[in-house]
Amino acid sequence: MIASLRGENLLTLEGVSDAALLEVLDTAESFVEVNRRSIKKVPALKGKVVASIFFEESTRTRLSFETAAKRLSADVLSLAVASSSVKKGESLRDTTATIDALGIDALVMRHQSSGAALQVSRYVPHVRVINAGDGLHQHPTQGLLDAFTIRQVLSERADTTGVESGLELFKGLRVLIVGDVRHSRVARSDIVAYSTLGCEVRVAAPGTLLPANIETWPVTVVSDFDEALEWADVVGLLRLQRERGSGSFVPSLEEFTQTFGLTFARAKRLRPTTIIMHPGPMNRGVEIDSKVADLASAVITRQVTNGVPVRMAVLYLALASVRDGGGS
């Protein structure tokens, strides 16, 4: 178990303790305040260099990480893979070595292969590697920001602060994850985070979109989606990943929407307090009805907003010193 993410790589949320998750959430809370100021910048990582390499396309994660690094006063090196030597066949190892040679402190990377971030972290042991999504494996910061968003919404309703509530609001919270679990690294990170924090997690998906080893996950698979919707305090939708061939795992998109899509009719049956989440980008009309995405209980843009303070916390802790020292 990782007791704290200070000075650590963030490759997966598996094996990260609830105390370490709590530390990220609480640190992120301090950065929410920074993001509300007119000058949204603190010098915490002045002089540090954060490289971001995205071998796979991304809008929100990349922008969010780079915004986070800049608000911490770090310098950001951003490699656009499409126009880089990767296209000439440069290996992952050589690309990493090249970027490392420029002198970097942290590396934020997304790659289409599961385990790529772990591999890179072995090439550059002196650099803190932050996984921004690797294949079908993990997307740790998404799991963190989803947990952060849930705590934020629930603590506001309870008229307290996230920090004051600690892990209390997660205990026994009923979370339903719906859709393309098989191809989703978000689902993997979310489920690990939620179950570590004490939530009860169920998944609803067509059998073809469940991973082969689902019985080893800390979840219950439910067959009746509509019944599960009434049970849930939080509904986490997943994108049907057509670029990973999800389309061929379901008879048709229409049928998927009919059976596992959050249609407007279904959304009306949810309790009004049930939180609707989606990591984006949404396929409006497939896993989520367009009108549902705009409901007040849908916190999808809040998830994006929270991406910045959560990633600031992740970078800040990763680059924090762990050396013991005295003084005040």
Binding site: R6, S30, E33, A44, L317, S321, V322, G325
Partner: peptide, 19 residues
């Protein structure tokens, strides 16, 4: 916390609220 000059020397302090 975010303005300290000893982040490399001392363990990063736990952060509190600014208001």
């Amino acid at each position: 916390s975010f303005y300290r000059d000893d982040l490399n020397v001392n363990p990063t302090p736990r952060t509190s609220m600014t208001a």
